[in-house]
């Protein structure tokens, strides 16, 4: 019996000098793989216009029916996106989303992309429906080159 005890403690003492394999989340975070798909971002052009034109192709591609969009028309003095159409409502239900990335794949404007964030925890279901304001990247994220997953080439908008 003593023998078993010593054997076990032996492992314990040996491991005491190894580096830990866990991270002290949330103080420490794991680096994400390049192809990890986290929460969505709606991107903008250099000039601040939204890339999304409200075409609803992402909603059509979504296997989980997680996206809800309403579109409206750009009017003089109220231009939101290039072209005539923009998304007046853009919502993703993160409880439904399976992070498959089909929306990103379907988007002809490179507007919706899946980023790296994965911290969704909240106290109620409503908060899991991300609105356009939450999804849309603001100036602090910097405009410009759209985020494109590795391997793909960004299209040029001359």
């Amino acid at each position: 019996m003593v023998q078993e005890l010593l054997k076990g403690l032996g492992i314990t003492f040996r491991r005491m000098f190894n580096k830990p394999v866990t991270l002290k989340y949330p103080d420490e975070k794991m680096p994400m793989f390049p192809r990890f798909r986290g929460r969505h971002h709606l991107q903008r052009y250099d000039n601040g216009l939204e890339r999304c034109v409200g075409c609803k192709l992402c909603a059509a591609a979504c296997p989980a029916d997680a996206i809800y969009i309403e579109s409206d028309e750009n009017r003089p003095g109220h231009r939101v996106s290039p072209g005539e159409r923009y998304a007046s409502t853009y919502e993703i239900n993160m409880l439904r989303c399976i992070f498959c990335g089909y929306c990103e794949e379907a988007c002809p404007e490179d507007a919706i992309v899946l980023g790296k964030d994965y911290e969704f925890a909240t106290y109620n279901r409503e908060a899991m429906i991300y609105t356009k304001e939450q999804l849309l990247d603001g100036p602090e994220k910097g405009f410009g080159e759209p985020y494109i997953r590795s391997g793909a080439k960004p299209p040029s908008y001359a």
Binding site: G54, C55, K56, A60, D72, E73, E84, R85
Partner: peptide, 9 residues
Amino acid sequence: YRFKARPWD
């Protein structure tokens, strides 16, 4: 009907 819907939804 402008921009109210797309044929598939």
